[in-house]
Design a protein around this nucleic acid. Structure first.
Lengths: 234, 234
DNA sequence: TCTTCATTTCCGGCGGCGGCGAAGCACCGC
DNA sequence: GCGGTGCTTCGCCGCCGCCGGAAATGAAGA
């Protein structure tokens, strides 16, 4: 197979509305069953099964069979980053059109397993400008002072370091600037959800990705990293 | 139109082999005419015309009409970065398969208007570890010492600063680590080609993206940035 | 003005892919 | 063991999108 054909077939996996809907739902970071994904995309289970086989075969999603359920999730942070940047392309072509949750998604959402949107970008900037992170080959590393601050907050740095990448940039489609990805970003997001500093919104499909900082969360963001979020929402 | 459909239609623009081939050819950074792109993709001019209209309409390529020719180029560095990362997805799914110029493309190529591959990644690392660049919100900025070094080499920093982004990360599909993008990366690439420090290889389509450092270029890379390239090639 | 050439528009044809339902398979609980 | 449930396989249908050729358009050159 020649190279252009391979680029095309990789894109073709995302180019179907039903598959795109399933990928969007999975971008919330949680694993979902085949049935849930079929409902979320509005197609018959048999059709969804074929789509999921294609996505798995193409390396976009990973499966975990458990009993009579099959749980699907985004295969890797690389895949998540690619989907995130492709949404930027979709956004750029028709910037005027507003969709449900549009403004809320811009404000704060998850990107697979970490925080994105204005919240994610501001957090990234705060971590750098406060000297928690400094650049390293292929991404970022923590300073000694940064380690101390993160551990005081309760971030699981050991888990973060076990990831394939510790901290790297992930292009944010709504802000068109990078937010933080990698193991550290996941650990921070996990902590924020566990402590109730940000809360997931109810919903299905794309709405699964919505989060909102609680008052307590806003205070932590401001005091620890100097992140100030304007209070308006959709 | 709902969001999954928009993600899908953005991906669909890349999901056709003929369009993918044209985009690959344009990723060399130069503008090409509709006829050249038709030949490069192996399709009739009429078919190519329809494809190019779709790509233009979708914001992936930009047109410049001059006389009876129409010159097409990649629309922006964002688009180039997305195509580059999608190639990583194509690469990841079938890593074993080798294509023409495979190893040479991994070693050194252009990504739209800047350097990529092992050369591009090593250059990025060299710039950071030598203290030429330091992190800034949304990307990188030069240090005072860095400015002096780059100007001594002949890099057009004024032109670089006029770009929408001065210096940012661009995910390298073959190395799976970022190389440098933005105005600075373009200025450096332009200088290297003008001075004959790297040379384009002859060819068409994907091969347009191939470059190779000359002996003089290897010396400059080593002395200025500490970049040492292993000499093997395909 | 007439010719030439790059590009576009229109058209008919066709292949491929997504869609569903029915049947088959695997696993769980009773 | 037996029904219920989640998922997959199979077969078939309909439609969308890609294709090239012929004719039209528009700009360059003689």
């Amino acid at each position: 197979m020649t190279t252009p054909a391979r680029l095309a077939s990789a894109a073709a996996l995302i180019a179907d509305p039903a598959r795109a809907a399933m990928l969007q739902a999975l971008m919330a970071g949680e694993a979902l069953t085949a049935g849930e994904l079929a409902r979320s995309a509005g197609i018959a289970p048999s059709t969804a099964s074929a789509h999921l086989a294609a996505l798995t075969d193409g390396g976009l999603v990973a499966v975990h069979a458990q009993g009579r359920h099959r749980w699907f999730r985004i295969a890797s942070e690389d895949v998540a980053a690619i989907l995130e940047s492709l949404m930027g392309l979709a956004e750029a072509t028709r910037p005027a059109r507003r969709w449900p949750h549009g403004e809320a998604l811009h404000a704060a959402r998850t990107c697979w397993d970490h925080l994105a949107g204005r919240l994610g970008v501001a957090l990234h900037e705060g971590l750098v400008s406060r000297g928690v992170l400094r650049p390293a080959p292929g991404g970022w590393e923590t300073t000694a002072a940064g380690d101390a601050l993160l551990e005081r907050l309760g971030v699981d740095l050991d888990a973060a370091r076990r990831a394939r990448r510790f901290a790297c940039d992930c292009m944010d489609w709504s802000e068109r600037r990078p937010h933080l990805g990698g193991g550290l970003a996941r650990a921070i997001c996990t902590l924020y959800l566990a402590r109730g500093w940000v809360r997931r919104q109810p919903g299905e499909g794309l709405a699964r990705r919505l989060v909102a900082p609680t008052p307590e969360g806003s205070r932590v963001l401001r005091e620890a990293f100097g992140v100030r979020l304007d209070a308006e929402a959709a």
